[in-house]
């Protein structure tokens, strides 16, 4: 079985000013969900790291620590393009140098995408705001990838392409 790898274009997409929401679940399979404030993909295009604010994502962090399952949805409001990534080995990893800057750049890029849709800048920024001192990083190996843009292909599992 070949391994899931993101294309360069997919990497650029999930690292751009998209909205990011991450979900896990507890031992009783009650789902948890939180916003993520940034994303970076390793050179192998398989290891994906998402940044969350621990004050907002307490339950999610707890659930990931317990089960390792993580689902993350990325959506660009202006185009509705949506991708969902899943991993089974998610774990807390130390922040890398520049992660806070990455999250700040993401917040601005998201706001930029939202402005033409009629939202005010302070609102757009607040949606993906975070406290730098509470940032945490969750890393996982991509196991499944789904097309989720609304339309006939929504929910389609994307197969590994080499």
């Amino acid at each position: 079985m070949s391994e899931m790898i993101l294309s360069d274009e997919q990497v650029r997409f999930i690292e751009s000013g998209v909205s990011i929401s991450a979900a896990s679940r507890d031992v009783r399979r009650v789902p948890s969900v939180s916003k993520a404030v940034g994303c970076r993909v390793a050179a192998d295009r398989r290891q994906v790291t998402v940044l969350v604010d621990a004050t907002q994502a307490g339950q999610l962090l707890q659930d990931v620590a317990a089960c390792g399952a993580l689902a993350v949805v990325f959506c660009l409001p202006s185009s509705h393009r949506t991708l969902q990534l899943k991993g089974r080995d998610a774990r807390l990893v130390p922040l890398a140098a520049g992660d806070a800057e990455l999250a700040a750049r993401h917040r601005e890029a998201f706001a930029e995408d939202l402005l033409p849709l009629g939202y005010a800048l302070p609102f757009a920024r607040a949606t993906h705001d975070f406290q730098a001192e509470r940032l945490q990083a969750l890393c996982f190996t991509l196991s499944d990838l789904f097309e989720q843009t609304p339309g006939p292909n929504a929910g389609l599992r994307l197969e590994p392409s080499r």
Partner: peptide, 19 residues
């Protein structure tokens, strides 16, 4: 006005999140 994120979990324990 703003999409919401909904998280669910399958019978096999795999979480899912969508807008």
């Amino acid at each position: 006005a703003v999409p919401a994120a909904i998280a669910t979990c399958g019978a096999d324990g795999t979480p899912n999140v969508t807008l």
